[in-house]
C-alpha cells in the first residue's frame, strides 16, 4: 500500500507521461472559443455515416488514430485500450476496440470517463502491468439526446439550466520514455447522491460529488489549491460550477480564479445557444486532451487538477423517480 496517500489518493513512484493526444470536435464545438486547439473539426455531425451511432464510433476511432499517429505508434505497440462512452453497453467503445484490435477494458463512468481512463491507465503503467496504454472517450449530441431525452426533431423547449451534450471524441496515449506532461497523482471519488432527481440539471446533481473529491484530494495530499494553474471540473456547467464552489466554501475550501469547468470553457455561453454549458464525455476529453494538453506544450500551464464528473443514472432509474448517483475522479497532471 506504499502508493496510497490518505484515504482515496494514489501517488505514482514512476509518473506516466501523456505522450500524445487526438481530438475530433463536432461542428458546434468547432465554432467555440477553443476551436484552434482541436486536431479535427467536423463540418457535418453525421460524418458521412448512415446513423448517428455509426458517426459516434467513427469519431472515437479517428481520435484514437490521431493520438497514435502523433506519437508514430502502431496499435501493436499498445498493451491496453481503456475506453467508454454514454450509449447503452458502451457500444461505441466496443466497436472501436474491435477496429483497433488492442486488448480492451471497457469503462463506464458516464462523463467522468476521460478522467477515469487517465487514472486507471496511469495506475496500470505505474504498477508495471503495461508499458503503453491508450485511453479514449466519445459523446455525440444526437445519440445522447435520443437515448436520454427526446427525438432530435421534437420541439421541446430547453430549460435555462440544461446543458448541451458535446459532440466529439478525445484519446490520450500514456507511457514512458517520451516527453510530455506527467500524471503524478489520482483521487478516486465515492458515489455521492444528494437527492437530485432532475436529469435535466445534471450539473447540480454532480456538484456535490465534485466537491467531495476535491476536498478529499486536498485533505489527502496537503497541497495548497493555489499551487495549481488550473483546477477544472468535467462538465458541471455554469450552475453546477457555482454550486460546487459554494459547497467547497462552506466546508472552508475557498477556490479562486483558477477554478473552472470544461463544460463552461468549451462554448461561448453568451453567443452559443447552449444554456448552462457543455456536458457529456467529450466535454472534458476535448478540453483536456485538446486545449489544455496544448497549453502544457506551449508551457502556459505547469500544474493541472482535472476532476472528471459523472452522472451515473439510467433512463429507467430516472423514470422510476430515483435520485441520481454521481461520482468524480481527480487526476493531477504536471509538466
Amino acid at each position: 500500500m506504499g502508493k496510497k496517500t490518505g484515504k482515496q489518493t494514489y501517488h505514482f513512484a514512476n509518473p506516466p507521461v501523456v505522450i500524445s493526444t487526438g481530438t475530433v470536435a463536432g461542428p458546434l464545438e468547432g465554432q467555440g472559443p477553443l476551436h484552434a486547439d482541436f486536431d479535427e473539426i467536423l463540418t457535418d455531425s453525421r460524418n458521412n455515416e448512415k446513423t448517428f451511432e455509426q458517426a459516434e464510433r467513427s469519431l472515437l476511432t479517428k481520435a484514437c488514430q490521431l493520438a497514435l499517429d502523433h506519437a508514430s505508434c502502431s496499435t501493436t505497440e499498445v498493451d491496453l485500450f481503456l475506453a467508454g462512452d454514454l450509449l447503452n453497453q458502451i457500444i461505441s467503445s466496443n466497436f472501436t476496440a474491435g477496429t483497433l484490435g488492442i486488448p480492451f477494458l471497457g469503462l463506464y463512468g458516464a462523463c467522468s470517463t476521460a478522467a477515469l481512463g487517465l487514472a486507471l491507465g496511469a495506475m496500470l503503467l505505474d504498477g508495471g502491468f503495461a508499458g503503453t496504454v491508450l485511453t479514449a472517450t466519445v459523446s455525440h449530441n444526437s445519440t445522447a439526446e435520443r437515448q436520454y431525452r427526446f427525438p432530435t426533431e421534437y420541439g421541446a423547449q430547453r430549460r435555462p439550466y440544461q446543458q448541451w451534450t458535446v459532440t466529439g471524441a478525445g484519446a490520450a496515449l500514456l507511457g514512458y520514455d517520451r516527453p510530455g506532461p506527467k500524471i503524478t497523482a489520482v483521487t478516486f471519488g465515492k458515489v455521492i447522491d444528494l437527492g437530485s432527481t432532475d436529469p435535466l440539471n445534471m450539473g447540480a446533481a454532480m456538484a456535490p460529488a465534485a466537491a467531495d473529491t476535491i476536498r478529499q484530494h486536498f485533505a489527502d495530499t496537503g497541497w495548497d489549491p493555489n499551487a495549481f494553474d488550473l483546477i477544472v471540473t468535467g462538465d458541471l456547467g455554469i450552475i453546477g460550477l457555482d454550486l460546487c464552489r459554494q459547497e467547497l466554501a462552506e466546508s472552508g475550501l475557498h477556490l479562486g480564479e483558477n477554478f473552472t469547468d470544461c463544460g463552461v470553457m468549451i462554448y461561448d455561453l453568451q453567443k452559443q445557444d447552449v444554456h448552462a454549458g457543455g456536458s457529456g464525455c467529450a466535454a472534458s476529453a476535448l478540453v483536456v486532451y485538446g486545449h489544455l494538453y496544448r497549453r502544457f506544450q506551449r508551457q502556459e500551464i505547469q500544474r493541472l487538477l482535472l476532476i472528471g464528473t459523472g452522472s451515473l443514472h439510467s433512463t429507467t432509474s430516472v423514470q422510476q423517480g430515483e435520485s441520481i448517483p454521481c461520482v468524480a475522479h481527480a487526476v493531477r497532471i504536471e509538466a
Binding site: P160, Y161, L194, G195, N201, A204, I239, Q246
Partner: peptide, 10 residues
Amino acid sequence: YQNKVKKAEP
C-alpha cells in the same frame, strides 16, 4: 442541498 439547488436554478 436541494434547497440550495432550487435557489440556484434560473
